[in-house]
C-alpha cells in the first residue's frame, strides 16, 4: 500500500518543457512512474520523451486519466500552477520549486485544504514508494530499497544519505517523503505521521528534521500519545548559529525557538531514539525493531 503514491498514480508534469521538467520526466519514466501528460502553455501537441504536452491541465484531463501533479514551474508562477492543479482536483500535488513567496504558499495551502487535497512541498524532493516503483520527485530511485520503514524529511540529499545508509544495512523503505525546506509547507510532519500510522505496510518511522519552527516537537508529542511502532530521529543543525538561514528558508533559529537541542529533547521525551550522525539511523532502527 504505502502512502500518497502507488501503482495507480498517474502523473502530469507541470513545466515539462523546461530543463528540470524534461530531465526529471525522463528519470521518473525510467524508474517506472506513470507520467502520462505534461503542460506548457503554447506548446500543446509537442511531445517530451514521448509524453504528450498540453496547454493546460484542463486540456490534458480531457485526453488523459491524470491523478497527481508535479510542478517544475519557476517560483514567480509556481503558486498559479498549484492553483491550476487544485482546481482540476489533482491529488497529491508535489511542488519541487524553491523560493516560492510565502504569501503564495499560504494561499495555495489554504485552497488545497478546503478541497482535501495534499500539497507536498514547496521546496521538496518529492515522494517515492520503492515497492510500487513509483516516484513523484527528483530523488535518485536506486538509493531507496523496498521495505517497511516510512521515511520523512525536510531536506533532499540528507534523505538520500540516510536512505543509502539504511539500504546498505539491509533496511528497506515503504515510502520516503520530502516535506519541504520552506517555513510553510503543505503536508506537515504530524499529518505525515498520521498517514504512515494508517499504512499497514509501514512498521517503523524515521523522522529527519532540522532547525527552525517546532514541527518536530509537535510531531514528537503526537507520536508519544498516538504511535506505538518504533521511531528513530535525526536533527540537522546542532551547530547552526541563531538568526542565520542555513540554506533552507525554514532552517533558522529565531530567538530561542527552532533549536536542535529543543527538538532532540522533545523527541527523546517521546521515546524516540535520536541519531548523532546520519549513519547511526540504521543501527538505531535495528535496535528498535
Amino acid at each position: 500500500m504505502a502512502i500518497l503514491v502507488d501503482k495507480d498514480t498517474r502523473v502530469i508534469v507541470q513545466g515539462i518543457t523546461g530543463g528540470q521538467g524534461t530531465f526529471h520526466s525522463a528519470a521518473m519514466l525510467k524508474y517506472g512512474t506513470k507520467v502520462v501528460a505534461g503542460t506548457s502553455p503554447g506548446k500543446s501537441g509537442e511531445e517530451v520523451h514521448g509524453i504528450p504536452v498540453y496547454d493546460s491541465i484542463r486540456e490534458a484531463k480531457e485526453a488523459q486519466d491524470v491523478t497527481a501533479s508535479i510542478i517544475f514551474i519557476p517560483a514567480p508562477y509556481a503558486g498559479d500552477a498549484a492553483l491550476e492543479a487544485i482546481a482540476n482536483d489533482l491529488d497529491p500535488i508535489v511542488i519541487i520549486t524553491e523560493h516560492v513567496p510565502v504569501k503564495d504558499e499560504i494561499r495555495v495551502i489554504h485552497e488545497a485544504k478546503m478541497k482535501g487535497i495534499t500539497i507536498i512541498g514547496p521546496n521538496t524532493p518529492g515522494v517515492i514508494t520503492p515497492r510500487a516503483k513509483q516516484k513523484i520527485g527528483i530523488m535518485p530511485g536506486h538509493v531507496f530499497a523496498e521495505g517497511d520503514v516510512g521515511l520523512m524529511s525536510r531536506s533532499g540529499t540528507l534523505t538520500y544519505e540516510i536512505a543509502a545508509g539504511m539500504t546498505n544495512a539491509g533496511i528497506g523503505i515503504s515510502t520516503a517523503l520530502g516535506l519541504g525546506g520552506d517555513p510553510c509547507v503543505g503536508l506537515t510532519t504530524i499529518e505525515a505521521v498520521k498517514m504512515f500510522k494508517e499504512d499497514e505496510d509501514t512498521k517503523a518511522l524515521v523522522l529527519v528534521g532540522e532547525i527552525g519552527g517546532d514541527a518536530e516537537e509537535r510531531a514528537a508529542v503526537y507520536i508519544k500519545e498516538n504511535y506505538d511502532l518504533p521511531v528513530v530521529g535525526f536533527i540537522a543543525g546542532r551547530t547552526a548559529p541563531p538568526g542565520k538561514r542555513m540554506g533552507h528558508a525554514g532552517a533558522i533559529i529565531s530567538g530561542s525557538t527552532g533549536t536542535a537541542a529543543a527538538k532532540i529533547k522533545a523527541m527523546n521525551d517521546a521515546g524516540i531514539a535520536v541519531a548523532e550522525k546520519p549513519s547511526d539511523v540504521a543501527r538505531l532502527l535495528k535496535e528498535a525493531m
Binding site: R154, S155, T157, L158, G181, E210, R238, G247, H248, K277
Partner: peptide, 17 residues
C-alpha cells in the same frame, strides 16, 4: 562544501562531533 542544505548542516554537525 556540500550539495543540499540538510546535508551541509549535518556535515557541519559531524565536523563538530
Amino acid at each position: 562544501i556540500c550539495n543540499g542544505a540538510g546535508l551541509t548542516m549535518a556535515t557541519l554537525d559531524a565536523v563538530s562531533l
